[in-house]
Design a protein around this nucleic acid. Sequence first.
DNA 1: TGTCGACCATACGCCACCGTATGGAGGCGA
DNA 2: TCGCCTCCATACGGTGGCGTATGGTCGACA
Lengths: 184, 184
Amino acid sequence: MRKLSRDEWVAGAFEALVDGGIDALRVEPLAKRLGVTKGSFYHHFDNRRALHLALLAGWEAIGTSQIIDGVGEAAVGPAEQLRVLAHRTMQVDPYSDAIENAIRAWAATDEVVAEAAARVDATRLDYVAGLLRSIGLPAPLARRRSNMLYRILIGEFMWRRAGGPATTKREIDEIVDLLIQPTT
Amino acid sequence: MRKLSRDEWVAGAFEALVDGGIDALRVEPLAKRLGVTKGSFYHHFDNRRALHLALLAGWEAIGTSQIIDGVGEAAVGPAEQLRVLAHRTMQVDPYSDAIENAIRAWAATDEVVAEAAARVDATRLDYVAGLLRSIGLPAPLARRRSNMLYRILIGEFMWRRAGGPATTKREIDEIVDLLIQPTT
DNA sequence: TGTCGACCATACGCCACCGTATGGAGGCGA
DNA sequence: TCGCCTCCATACGGTGGCGTATGGTCGACA
């Protein structure tokens, strides 16, 4: 008889989220995938909602730091840091694409999720805006440009998830070059 | 006793799609919303899938032309046309946001939907790229810039849907100005 | 005014899933 | 070895939704 920890359930839930979205994340099918019965699930969680919230908490924890961590060490100047950041976040990763999209779509119908997503977005945007200011853009312009880059990112995730071709490395460089322009 | 046409069912389905996504689009609740029973539904449609496909066909029909139609009359030069196009598509419309996102999220798990979305995307992208070429950008650059703008659009839809503040008119102008730059 | 067809209500069987209740297996300390 | 605690299997009732079968209503039209 296999024994699972709570974290293993959450990890399995992320897998299920990837190929089906939050609505397809049901406890009995998930239990079958994990090789146990739902008796295990209801030992670790009060109900289905509790699993969803655990999932959300996990995403928020890694979603905030994952992208930013290590950028400062990987590159020296702010312009190069921005470039590294862009390449890292836009690299092809179907797993991340699916999760990011699933959470964001979920946010449309769940206030708690929307708030968590807003926190993650704010952290990322602040970081990028700070980089742009370091490059020399005035604060309001830096803010607008970071918003622009962030929309490109979200769009890229969703675009790829729907089956579209990924943005190439060369195009990413071009985007960064364009965004750090002080004027139009 | 109320009587509905097939189109009224589709229209109702769009409403339901807006506040819940494709998974929440179920025939019995929808029938209740429309003030009839599912007896009516199964008179007009073979099954739930048929409604989904009708929905998809409706979206593809309007999604391709809706944005483009009338732009040629509303502005003279290609640069101004692009500006008009950007303002039109990015204007705040929670209804469109929801549908666009729902379809795109749906495309991640349904091949038929993914193909329809790809057709719509290709049409829109071709149009924007053509505008950029008319402005004077070389074809490959025009293609890359249109991809960029399109990602911003998708990102904007999803961003707003998740509760974020909309891009202002001034920012939209700035984006267009940046994208029609011949070089970085 | 009778008939026909379009449209819908109702009732039914079926299935997937939720959450609960209960007991059983197995490790672990006293 | 005994009892306990953690983790899970099993069985159950309940709910919501799918699709079908069947009959009823109402307007159009001859």
